[in-house]
Design a protein around this nucleic acid. Structure first.
Lengths: 207, 207, 207, 207
DNA sequence: AGGTAATCGAGACGGTACGTCCAGTCTTTGT
DNA sequence: ACAAAGACTGGACGTACCGTCTCGATTACCT
């Protein structure tokens, strides 16, 4: 009873070459114009080899961007004691990464891939939300132990959503924008404060 | 010196038929598998006529979703006096729209189109951010005249970004999520409060 | 009771412009790539006007080449008393005309048109065979009153057929070829002479 | 240094299917209305495969008619000792072939193809003239060893030219016409005889 | 050492869609 | 009524890719 496979072993080197070629093609031409033929040619591989590793264009892109090149590692939020500055720095690092044209192209490509494929969408969600929510939750737990977990999710997705939205619509995430974003998420809309004299304090259910 | 156009007039009826066929195709197959051939056939039009109106797949989709069918009109935020409830209702109406599978497909398609094309991305931004920011700004002005304009933009994009992100990654915008989102945007992350004893109050410049 | 047509009269000038544009297009691109759009544009005419005069591409080409430009008038065979030289000169003049690249292109185009359309084929036959047979018959009647009419037809079509065949297959009608052709038609294949010691003199019926 | 071809071998079966589909299409619709789309569909092949084998409509038709179906093999002229009857039989067999509507359509198509393309024209010439000239020369050598080679070419092209001309202009090659043609080529125009009392015996140079 | 089997580059295969061009018709305005 | 202009449906063009299949040539394991 043996699980060692017979025949020639699959080459990791070829797989890497395919991912690199994919990354280059994505940065140059975007998701829509991605061509398996071109990728295979650029990687010096046969088309069949590409399909052996990745069954579809979207799977290839997901692998490339999420587990290979392109998406930032989303490290932990730093903890200097000053939460506003820490959050701002963390978000700024993310913005700096998105400001590189090549990274922007890769992430836009992965959003297009996620729009097409449910599988990729879920991988995208798992990779992005989980990481950023964890980072945020960990930092907030230090600053405010009473924070409810749902708030961290909402805040994480508001931050990530706003950043990706800006990327999608080609608006730069300026320092001013990042400041306003951090302020909003930490303190609520300026001027409304944390209280609502006319509304109900408890969240209302809808739908 | 004449501005009268010679030749047969361009048919608005055909244009509408093209947009309707596009809408149906998008809902059925998604952006990637959209075929101009099929759209033209379904609209009873020649391919050339489609290209006469819209130079590319992305332009067609943008017109279809933004100025035709699919994207909610993003009306004004209601003003019952209770801002939290008003905002929650406004967002809930948006979420209800996105919960319809057909609408979800159309909007995912338009995000894919925006990812492909700078032009479409800007039209998307103009249509979505401007409308939601205006609605939000108008409502906040009533509630808190002192709010800075930048906050409205950040808040609007945080809300819209979070909603679109959820749509993209196939996560339903549950009532609980909407509640948390409204709370965060109105009051900041629960537990951190409106003050930050350790951070600087004034926003820091970054990058 | 009036036979004057109401409205604007059809313009002969436009018709001529159309034929000239057709001639130029044929010489430049050949029959296959002929485009009514281009012809109309070059003639400064609307497409409808072209179709009003000529219902099809082949009719237009027939009119252009046969009754307009391109095909030689096929005048009478000269009569200097020396029939061989007269026939040779007549054929030489035809060959000279076909040697011009533009004329060659026009006639090749008309053969392509004849291959496509029965109508054009018959017009072609009427124009070409009748004229050359008449010319040949008239000359032969002077030289040999006993000649049977069928011979003139066969000889005319052998000559015309050989010339068009050479044109079709891009072989120049060299002086040597013309000499051999005239010899063959006037005297039979060299060396076989006018008698056939082993065959029957009277033509045999076949089929 | 290797001449082994890599990749999947090209399928002769597909090539044959393409030629058969072409033959059927040509017989049914003629050269002008020939559609590569339809041919590929009828052959159960992709368009690209058709283009891989034949770069253009005219090349495809040439291959189909000349080296495939349609053009008679132009066998040797029979030798029963009676040259007139032999030649008449040979030509009659050719005429019989052209009398079939389907064959007529194929050959008309190949003349249209030759009119379009220099390449096809030369292939046509090589296939037709060479074969008929060889057949004729071989037979004449037996009957009249003194015949000059140039005569055989002229005679062959006069015969072939006349036959193709009749085909082009939709005139049947009647037995009477064939008789006259054979007489003309063997003995010269009836009534002029083999001598020319008023002309020069030696061919004149022209042009 | 010699089979056996999976993988490799290469590229032909049946298809689908592309974006362009043209045929032939129809509509609009101008003459 | 005719003419130019030009939009319309329809359909073929030749190209580019898709995903599959078939080659000969490599590797690797397994007798």
């Amino acid at each position: 009873m043996s699980d060692t496979r017979r025949g020639r072993a699959r080459s990791e080197a070829v797989r890497r070459a395919i991912l690199e070629a994919t990354r280059d093609e994505l940065a140059a031409n975007g998701y829509d114009k991605l061509s398996i033929d071109r990728i295979a040619a650029a990687a010096g591989a046969g088309k069949q080899t590409v399909y052996r590793w990745y069954p579809s264009k979207s799977a290839l892109v997901a692998e490339c961007v999420l587990d290979g090149y392109g998406f930032p590692a989303t490290g932990p939020v730093p903890n200097t004691g000053a939460i506003r500055r820490d959050l701002r720095d963390w978000l700024g690092a993310f913005a700096d990464h998105l400001a590189q044209p090549q990274s922007a192209a890769l992430i836009r490509a992965s959003t297009a891939a996620a729009a097409e494929s449910d599988d990729v969408a879920l991988r995208f969600y798992d990779h992005v939300t989980a990481a950023s929510e964890d980072a945020l939750t960990a930092r907030l737990r230090d600053a405010a132990p009473a924070a409810r977990p749902a708030s961290a999710t909402a805040a994480a997705e508001a931050l990530v959503g706003a950043m990706l939205y800006r990327l999608l619509v080609r608006q730069p995430a300026t320092p001013q924008f990042l400041d306003s974003l951090v302020d909003t998420v930490l303190s609520g809309i300026q001027g409304t404060g944390g209280t609502d004299s006319t509304g109900t304090q408890a969240p209302q259910s809808h739908t």
